[in-house]
Amino acid sequence: METPEIPQKAPIRLEMEAGTYFWCTCGKSDNQPFCDGKHKGSSFSPEKVVFEEAKTVSWCACKHSGNGTFCDGSHKSL
């Protein structure tokens, strides 16, 4: 199993509009925390996230969260 790259050891906090987003799981995207297709040729694929309403989100940027796409503080132990 491949290990994701760690783009940063802090969450990316964003105001999100309702809609569908694709979270980068490989850590290689230049558009963190979102997928830009750099996972192609690897075992990674983006994770689909749907928001029914606008909300503030702390996206995981270390790619090691036990809470999937959202930060759980795992970056503090990396």
Rank of each mutant, 00 (worst) to 15 (best):
M1C: 12
E2G: 01
E2I: 01
E2P: 06
E2D: 05
T3Q: 15
T3P: 09
P4Y: 11
P4I: 11
E5H: 09
I6K: 14
I6C: 11
I6A: 07
I6E: 10
P7H: 03
P7G: 06
P7V: 04
Q8N: 06
K9R: 14
A10E: 14
A10V: 12
A10W: 00
A10T: 07
P11I: 08
P11G: 00
P11R: 02
I12G: 08
R13H: 01
L14Q: 05
L14P: 00
M16Y: 13
E17I: 12
A18R: 07
A18C: 02
A18G: 05
G19Y: 14
T20G: 06
T20W: 00
T20P: 07
T20C: 00
Y21S: 12
Y21D: 05
F22Y: 15
W23K: 07
W23G: 02
C24K: 08
C24T: 10
T25P: 15
C26D: 10
C26S: 04
C26Y: 01
G27Q: 08
K28I: 13
S29Q: 06
S29R: 03
N31S: 15
Q32I: 12
Q32K: 05
P33G: 02
P33E: 08
P33K: 14
P33A: 06
F34N: 02
C35L: 03
C35K: 03
D36L: 09
D36T: 02
D36C: 11
K38F: 01
H39M: 03
H39Y: 01
H39A: 11
K40T: 03
K40N: 12
G41R: 03
S42P: 01
S42Y: 10
S42K: 12
S43V: 13
F44A: 13
F44V: 09
S45Q: 13
E47V: 15
V50L: 02
F51Q: 10
F51D: 09
E52W: 05
E52L: 11
E52Q: 13
E52G: 14
E52R: 13
E52K: 15
E53N: 11
E53M: 09
E53L: 09
A54V: 06
A54Y: 03
K55L: 07
K55P: 07
K55M: 07
T56C: 01
T56S: 09
T56Y: 03
V57W: 01
S58P: 02
S58M: 12
W59Q: 01
A61W: 06
A61C: 14
C62R: 09
C62G: 02
K63T: 10
K63G: 04
K63M: 15
G66E: 13
G66P: 07
N67L: 05
N67Y: 13
N67Q: 13
T69D: 00
T69E: 04
F70M: 00
C71A: 08
C71S: 08
C71G: 02
C71F: 04
D72C: 06
D72P: 06
S74E: 04
K76P: 01
K76G: 08
K76C: 05
K76L: 09
S77Q: 14
S77D: 13
L78D: 03
